[in-house]
Design a protein around this nucleic acid. Structure first.
Length: 950
RNA sequence: GGGCAGUUAGCUCAGUGGUAGAGCAUCUCGUUUACACCGAGGUGGUCGGGGGUUCAAGUCCCUCACUGCCCACCA
């Protein structure tokens, strides 16, 4: 190493070496990286997230533990499919042109191309996951785990098919879970439409709606029974009259119903009920139907999967086949023509959008696969209640609890092609014939397919467990059971021969794939090979580090899945780190163009400097961190904070240069023994060794409670302020004597080598470059060192610092003497400091002999700590401005003194405060009193000097 | 609407009931045995507003205001 200054590009040019652990599942410390989407690139959140994890992994390695970091990628069902479909459409193709099999091939090609991208970026950041064990959620082994998980839940009756209103994306043509839907306010129009009564004696009603195209799917109108505006109407209804209205443009008759869910303060108070296209309406209809079984209202679906109007029976011919927004404008035109459109006004409408493509969600009645959540949610809640999992910061447990406590069943089927296809084969039951006979026939047929090699066990089960058979066939397991209108088979693992037989017998495989989050919920298990081996550890991993937005989407699901399927928990500690926002407090997003590329920052400041900053962010600060930087004219981002971290590393680099220069050695591999170290007599060396031990122990303690920021702040302050600015500066005066020189060398070697150890988890590149020069340091952090003297030594050093700082301050502030100009002082007694601390050299003062002192003209009496001395005031000093300054200081100090006096004399204080505090306050009072006295004297002297001059 | 967090120096943020802190920026001085990517010394605060508890509140409680996020959503 010869470079004068630290150059991250050079230091980080070579990737860091990595040796994987053997038998990763039984490692002492395991972290599973939240798998990034294969579609994605490394963003700020990843960089922060991965750095913290890498620091934990490297720290554990440093402490001699077998640490394993599991990585991999998520197949990102919809995300990938959208990208591949876009690519196809640019070639003028659709997925249907390719067919399912070729589409999957195409998606695999695309995936393989991008699979390594994020890993390369993580490598550049200096991360050290086990590259050799990288997992992918669609790999064959991972897929087996997904099948196993599905099968187990199916076996327990936790998976069911159900037809209900779900979130539907008409662009992606798939169902979505609640968590994939985002809510945004958008500008929209609210229309008022006139509905006419069948009985002319009833009033016409004005309905407010934002979706006039859905009037044909109306099955009722509803008002609130408490709505005074419709008093007369309500009287009739309550008297038992069935009141009916005509749907505009259609003439279809629909009843008026009552519901207290109709808001009194919105629109006209009349709500059109469209159960097939609105969640709220569906709920009202359900309530009504339960309360009024003889006056049930139905649900009419008029849309197809792309949200085109299709129902020939319900919809006028001129709307057939029109897309929802086109249909809306045509309906509005027709309503205007027939004078049934009363008004139209703008308003801010809360809108539900698909998180991946931004398309407005269509509530859509459809048959989907669900996971029954109540028992699973309880497992997850119990783990928290029993303290088996722990959130850091603890407040995030609330987010987790709140969601699990009012959870709905999880819709896990997606109408996509990219993902884990649901392993269920289904066959419709004939609608005619004696059910008993049909059942027997189907069962016998199925037994023929399986060849009777299992041990079918019919159950007379409950609603969750309809009659079913389960068995094993050549190692594979199946469940065969009746559904509502069909009979179905769930197969645990792929089995081509068996699947073919099923197909021949008329069974058709479910075309849907599983929600991406179903497979990622298995991550800590499946990525580590759950289907082939079981973990010997109490938890699948130790720590999960992630962002708060996926606590519900992912963290909670991992917990109940792992507990349910393996009895073990996926991790013990959950670290939720802040979100990095733009400097003006906005959320970063690629589409908004305000995202900051972490790799660009790495190129500008070096990975080590970036990592130092991510650590200083840590996990305990504000839950949103603003990026401390700005966008340059060329579009790149700069940050003084990152620059500062880089300078810290440069400081370290140069401290090493200094050592080499002093000791003229190639390296410092020959390290001192503990004995040699304890023989050290040099005061400052003893002090820095002592302080190093204290610092390193505190840092260890900090990182064990995940306080990354305390860890890095402790290291930085120790090295820069104490080691460089004080220790090395004192050392410069002692390097000339032989004995001290050895002491100093041993101390520097030990402190730096140990410091590099502690820095390595955070800044692995620079430490690699510097550590080669050193041997293994003795780890004195576990020993009491350097014995009992440390209190005295620490006092000497703090006295020295106070004295030197005070003199420096006086030189510049009071006397106006440059820092490099020697100052003549006179004093009666030497300060009580060890000689090898060289206070006069540090403060750059010279003791004036008596003769010189007598020739002093104007004199100031001053005090540094308990040391009193006199200095000559240079002629050119403007005493008037100094006087003003001293007066200002004096008034400040006097107030401070009064406050201290008051406090100490307060009986409440002396009765309640701790002795330690009282002593501290008393010494502070003494000190302030000294300062006041000193300032008063200085002021007096200046006044005298004035008198003398005038 | 429900919840969480934040509001401290010009900026970005620490702060554990006990004298208000750091880094950057700014100002002054200085090339001295590594580092000017440095060193030394300054300036700068009614801790968002208002109440309360306490001998003592940035810290605990109540309340208001603003900002950000999460959850649920109005036709």
């Amino acid at each position: 190493m010869t470079a004068k200054n630290y150059d991250p590009a050079l230091v980080e040019a070579k990737p860091l070496p990595f040796i994987p652990v053997e038998d990763a599942l039984s490692a002492d410390f395991i972290i599973c990286l939240p798998p990034p989407n294969v579609t994605g690139e490394l963003h700020m959140g990843h960089a922060l997230n991965s750095t913290l994890q890498d620091v934990m992994i490297r720290f554990n390695r440093l402490k001699g533990k077998k640490a394993h970091w599991q990585i991999g990628c998520d197949h990102a069902g919809i995300g990938t499919q959208i990208v591949v479909e876009k690519q196809l459409s640019s070639e003028g193709l659709s997925k249907y042109d390719l067919g399912r099999e070729d589409f999957e091939k195409r998606s695999w090609e695309w995936t393989r191309q991008y699979l390594g991208r994020i890993e390369g970026q993580l490598k550049r950041l200096g991360c050290s996951p086990d590259w050799s064990r990288s997992a992918f959620t669609l790999n064959p082994e991972y897929s087996l785990s997904v099948r196993e998980a599905f099968f187990e839940l199916y076996r327990e009756g936790l998976i069911y098919r159900g037809k209900r209103l779900i979130n539907w994306c008409p662009k992606c043509c798939t169902s979505l879970s609640d968590l994939e839907v985002i809510h945004e306010e958008q500008n929209a129009k609210l229309f008022e439409i006139r509905y006419l009564p069948i009985d002319p004696s009833d009033p016409e009603l004005i309905v407010s709606t934002s979706r006039p195209e859905t009037i044909f799917a109306d099955t009722a109108l509803a008002i609130n029974p408490k709505d005074d505006r419709y008093k007369d109407l309500l009287v009739k209804v309550k008297a038992g009259k069935e009141i009916t209205y005509k749907i505009p443009l259609s003439g279809k008759c629909i009843p008026l119903i009552l519901s207290d869910k109709v808001l009194l303060d919105f629109g006209t108070g009349v709500l059109k009920i469209t159960p097939a296209h609105d969640f709220n309406d569906a709920y009202i209809a359900k309530e009504w139907n339960q309360a009024q079984p003889d006056r049930m209202i139905g649900a009419v679906n008029i849309l197809d999967e792309k949200a085109y109007l299709v129902s020939i029976d319900e919809v006028p011919e001129y709307l057939w086949g029109l897309e929802r927004y086109l249909a809306r404008s045509l309906v509005l035109q027709k309503l205007t023509e027939s004078e049934q459109l009363v008004s139209e006004k703008s308003y801010r409408q809360p809108t539900s959008l698909h998180d991946r493509c931004g398309t407005a969600i269509e509530p859509y009645p459809s048959e989907q696969t669900f996971v029954r959540m109540s028992s699973l949610a309880k497992l997850a809640l119990d783990a928290l209640k029993r303290g088996e999992i722990q959130f850091y910061p603890a407040r995030y447990a609330q987010t987790y609890e709140a969601w699990l406590e009012k959870i709905e069943d999880w819709c896990i089927s997606r109408q996509l092609w990219w993902g884990h296809q649901i392993p269920v084969w289904r066959k419709s039951l004939p609608s005619e014939g004696d059910p008993e006979e049909v059942n027997k026939l189907i069962r016998d047929q199925f037994r023929q397919i399986t060849g009777e090699c299992g041990y079918p066990r019919p159950l007379t089960g409950d609603i969750h467990h309809p009659t079913h058979l389960q068995g094993k066939k050549a190692g594979n397991e199946y469940i065969w059971q009746y559904g509502a209108q069909s009979v179905e088979v769930c197969l645990k693992a792929p089995d081509q021969a068996f699947e073919e037989k099923l197909t021949q017998a008329g069974y058709i495989r479910d075309a849907d794939v599983l929600d991406t989050w179903f497979s990622s919920a298995l991550w800590p298990l499946a990525a580590q090979g759950w289907s082939s081996q079981k973990t010997p550890r109490p938890y699948w991993s130790d720590t999960m580090c992630t962002a708060r937005e996926i606590i519900n989407l992912w963290v909670s699901r991992m917990i109940f899945m792992s507990r349910k399927l393996t009895g073990k928990l996926p991790f013990r500690d959950i670290l939720i780190h802040p979100v990095v926002q733009t400097p003006d407090g906005k959320r970063m997003s690629k589409s908004k163009g305000n995202a900051i590329e972490p790799i660009a920052l790495v190129e500008r400041y070096g990975a080590d400097a970036c990592r130092l900053w991510y650590c200083s962010v840590g996990i305990f600060g504000n839950q949103d961190i603003r990026f401390p930087g700005k966008k340059e004219k060329d579009g790149s981002w700069s940050s003084p904070e990152l620059e500062q971290k880089r300078r810290f590393l440069n400081k370290l680099w140069n401290a090493l240069n200094f050592m080499r220069m002093q000791f003229q050695q190639e390296n410092f591999r020959e390290m001192p023994t503990m004995e040699q170290l304890t023989q050290t007599r040099d005061t400052s060396s003893l002090w820095i060794l002592c302080l190093a031990r204290k610092t390193f122990l505190e840092c260890e303690e900090a990182i064990l409670r995940y306080d990354f920021s305390a860890y890095i702040n402790g290291l930085e302050r120790f090295f820069w302020t104490n080691f460089c600015d004080w220790y090395l500066e004192i050392a410069k005066f002692n390097l000339s004597t032989a004995q001290s020189k050895t002491d100093l060398k041993w101390t520097m070697q030990t402190v730096i080598a140990l410091f590099l150890n502690y820095l390595e988890p955070v800044a692995p590149f620079i430490t690699r470059a510097l550590r080669d020069d050193f041997g293994a340091p003795v780890d004195f952090t576990e020993l009491k060192f350097p014995s009992e003297d440390d209190i005295e030594i620490n006092e000497s050093l703090s006295d020295l610092m106070l004295l030197v700082s005070t003199i420096r301050s006086i030189r510049q502030r009071v006397l106006g003497i440059a820092p490099n100009q020697s100052l003549k002082v006179s004093y009666k007694e030497e300060p009580n400091l060890p000689k090898d601390l060289h206070w006069t050299k540090l403060a750059l003062v010279e003791r004036a002999d008596q003769k010189t002192e007598r020739s002093f003209q104007k004199v100031l009496s001053l005090r540094g700590g308990s040391f009193v001395f006199r200095v000559q005031v240079p002629k050119e000093i403007d005493l008037k401005s100094r006087q003003t300054q001293i007066e200002k200081d004096l008034s400040k100090k006097t107030i401070e003194l009064d406050q201290l006096k008051q406090k100490l004399s307060d009986p409440g204080f002396s009765n309640n405060a701790s002795d330690e505090l009282k002593i501290k306050m008393q010494s502070s009072l003494d000190h302030t009193q000294g300062e006041v006295q000193e300032l008063t004297e200085a002021l007096k002297l200046i006044e005298q000097a004035f008198d003398g001059n005038e």
